[in-house]
């Protein structure tokens, strides 16, 4: 049934931290690995070793360059993009067959590969490019939120998370119930100002993005207030050590000490 179910109390989704994502593609590859044999299997590739390899991936990691006003250098933001499991997904309501549906119990948006006719209209209706058509399989593929992991009792409890979340080496991906204000993911969103993509379109995405923190690097960071020398015995010891180490006998280390610069200000 492609009419939407009444809004569920449980809203499972991802929170993606754009501050800590390093763009390593581990989430994308582990997604492909798990889902090539899971619910969405197969996830076909065509010409994988040729000059123009293409294939179905449910998670894509973009890189954006953001130019801040008054900054000489722009910053790079790694930006994972996958299905946001919208509360009001147009990809579901446009489906003519009922293959595309939103689960009433937890809000996950899925495609039934047995009834999908491969008309592609859902991919036209999605503003986020979350759906990719599998040419060889003739049906639409999308993120399942690893529905075959998160409820899988054959897995250890700590593994019952989406493959992308498990794989992320920097902990930039978080999974949980965004319908529950007391969940870890909801707290994270509240604390860090998590936001929706294209909120003006009105699809109410469940997944949230955490904005990059204000930058702190050599060009822009204000030097943190350093303790001023107070003339104590400790200070005098460090000044003596600094002089000693700055002497020409330990050339190889001079630059390091200069860079730390802690006591020279």
């Amino acid at each position: 049934m492609t009419s939407l179910p009444p809004p569920s109390a449980k809203k499972l989704g991802l929170v993606i931290d754009l501050d800590t994502c390093v763009g390593c593609q581990a989430c994308a590859t582990s997604c492909k690995e798990w889902n090539a044999q899971g619910y969405s299997a197969p996830l076909n590739d065509s010409n994988p070793y040729g000059s123009e390899p293409t294939g179905v991936w449910l998670n894509r990691i973009h890189g954006f360059e953001v130019k801040e006003e008054g900054q000489a250098h722009s910053r790079i933001v790694n930006f994972p993009r996958s299905c946001l499991h919208c509360e009001e997904p147009a990809c579901v309501t446009v489906c003519p067959t009922g293959a595309s549906y939103k689960r009433a119990e937890d809000g996950i948006v899925l495609v039934n590969p047995e009834t999908c006719i491969g008309c592609k209209l859902c991919s036209w209706a999605c503003p986020y490019g979350a759906r990719e058509y599998d040419q060889s399989d003739g049906v639409m593929k999308k993120c399942t939120l690893c529905v075959d992991r998160i409820y899988n009792e054959n897995l250890d409890v700590e593994d019952r998370q989406p493959a992308c979340v498990k794989a992320c080496p920097t902990g930039a991906r978080h999974f949980g119930d965004l319908g529950d204000a007391s969940s870890n993911v909801s707290k994270l969103v509240a604390e860090r100002g998590g936001y929706d993509l294209l909120p003006e379109m009105g699809y109410k995405p469940v997944n949230k993005y955490l904005p990059p923190r204000p930058r702190r690097d050599a060009h822009t960071a204000k030097a943190e207030a350093l303790p001023k020398p107070d003339g104590s015995a400790f200070d005098r010891l460090f000044v003596w050590a600094d002089k000693l180490l700055s002497s020409k006998r330990v050339v190889g280390r001079v630059s390091d000490i200069d860079n730390s610069g802690k006591l020279e200000g």
């Binding site: 390899p53 293409t54 294939g55 993005y209 904005p211």
Partner: peptide, 26 residues
């Protein structure tokens, strides 16, 4: 691009790197 990525509050957004080496379905 700013509203799509939500990065407009930081500055102007441009594409730096696409996620794949050849065109995908999208």
């Amino acid at each position: 691009m700013e509203s799509a990525t939500g990065l407009g509050s930081i500055g102007t957004v441009g594409q730096w790197e696409v996620p794949h080496t050849s065109e995908n379905y999208v």
